[in-house]
Write a protein that binds this DNA or RNA. Structure first.
Lengths: 249, 249
DNA sequence: AAAATTATTGCAAAATATTGCAAAACATTT
DNA sequence: AAATGTTTTGCAATATTTTGCAATAATTTT
């Protein structure tokens, strides 16, 4: 079994399961624990996954890239995308940043929608090439391989002169008390800047990100205009989120 | 067993299995390990597979290209890329814009090269995620779907503060008398701006672009520092290009 | 805090890669 | 057909990479 072969298999498993266990994989592929451990280190160096105690977890960009190729979209995310599309009207200007959810919201936009999309996510820009009536503005800056978006002073400066209608913000966690938070500091600053440049901030999240808490807080929950999930607004999981003036879809 | 025959078989096996093991193949085809090893090296030089420790794996972009029927130009471009890499030193800052040739020059850069690459081509930024030691700066602006690059005042402004070592300029045509030219006006302005931001401008072209003339002139031939093609510098086709102080590779 | 699991490190064995060289095969010219 | 030059091939010596192991450290769980 070639090393590169193992690498591919690990990444594939990561795509479907979102996480891998070191011991499991080593038994599955019938190689020593150490080899797999070193594989994981190498792959992390390439920014293709995130190493955690006991194994590794998927990187948003990777799942994006993989699902793009495979054309498989998670049905939960598709539901979120559908709801998001209802908030968009013709001729609006929309800011979108990184993350799998945003990628699908963009990719699945109606083909006849006329809009301008501003993004720091090159995958999204490329994908929107298939939408003839959507103008795309790509925000430049230092490209963060791990998150597959550009971040930095340049990105920020460009936003200063923009007044968008909507901002679809991708996040890693949200809770009613602690607001929205993510894993990267620079990115959290960027997101605050983006909020300032749009009238309404909309957050789409998959269930597993609800009621958990990541390191860097972006904003209070009440500062968000609208929260979209795959759940029914009356779902038990969402009960704390009501009553703060945020639309729940 | 002919060499070409072996090459075919290796590529076929690669197509079905996505990977080949050096030892296995050599036993299967009943030739020495060394011959297969050299086959793999040759095929890699043509950009038809990716050599790894112990064997080779299929080349993702190539299968992509092959399915589109574009496979032929590939080995020509690989040759240009190889020549281009010799001009690059560690720790340089390099501007690269759009075009297939530039894409391959970037993608095939040595994995251990330390450099900063500035580009308005998001495909290139994404591809360079696989190069851990290369920093990428993405230039923002209006995204031109047709050419898959960003162009505009913003892009231009960002370049004002940049002094790069090299600029790899993609073009549609070049001739000794009429210089370099392309098909899009906005892009031609952009390229002139990029030339100003780099010490040396390098042009890599496939044979079919030599001695033809496109609509929008970017610069005189003599303003280029170096011209790279797949031909030998002494080739008949290139005879007019000598004597203008431009390095021909 | 102890136990259990997982990580890290250094090391030696195994596998693979590289290089130079000479024989063999092939093609080309006399 | 002989002589010549080129390409291909296999071999051997050497270098590099990968691998598994064992001892030790760090982390998570109990």
């Amino acid at each position: 079994m070639l090393k590169e072969e193992r690498h591919q298999l690990i990444l594939e498993k990561l795509n479907t399961d979102k996480k891998v266990n070191l011991v499991d994989i080593s038994q599955l592929l019938n190689v020593s624990y150490d080899s797999i451990r070193r594989d994981i280190i190498e792959l992390e160096d390439k920014g293709l996954l995130k190493k955690v105690h006991g194994g590794a977890i998927a990187n948003s960009y990777l799942s994006m890239k993989a699902s793009k190729g495979l054309g498989i979209a998670n049905s939960e995310i598709m539901g979120i995308a559908k709801k998001a599309h209802k908030l968009i009207e013709n001729h609006q200007t929309i800011i979108m940043d990184g993350g799998t959810t945003n990628f699908y919201i963009a990719e699945q936009l109606p083909k006849n929608l006329e809009a301008t999309i501003i993004t720091n996510n090159p995958h999204l820009a490329i994908s929107l090439s298939e939408h003839p009536k959507i103008d795309v503005i790509l925000l430049g800056g230092t490209f963060y391989k791990r998150y597959q978006i550009s971040i930095g002073i340049e990105t920020s400066t460009a936003l200063e002169h923009i007044n968008a209608d909507l901002y679809f913000m991708g996040i890693n966690s949200i809770s009613a008390n602690n607001g929205a938070a993510i894993r990267n500091y620079e990115e959290s600053l960027m997101k605050r800047r983006m909020m300032q440049s749009a009238r309404r901030t909309i957050v789409g999240v998959v269930e597993e990100k609800i009621n958990i808490q990541e390191t860097y807080k972006v904003c209070e929950f009440s500062q968000i205009s609208c929260l979209i999930s795959s759940l029914s607004p009356s779902d038990e999981l969402l009960k704390d989120f009501h009553g703060q003036g945020v639309e729940i879809l």
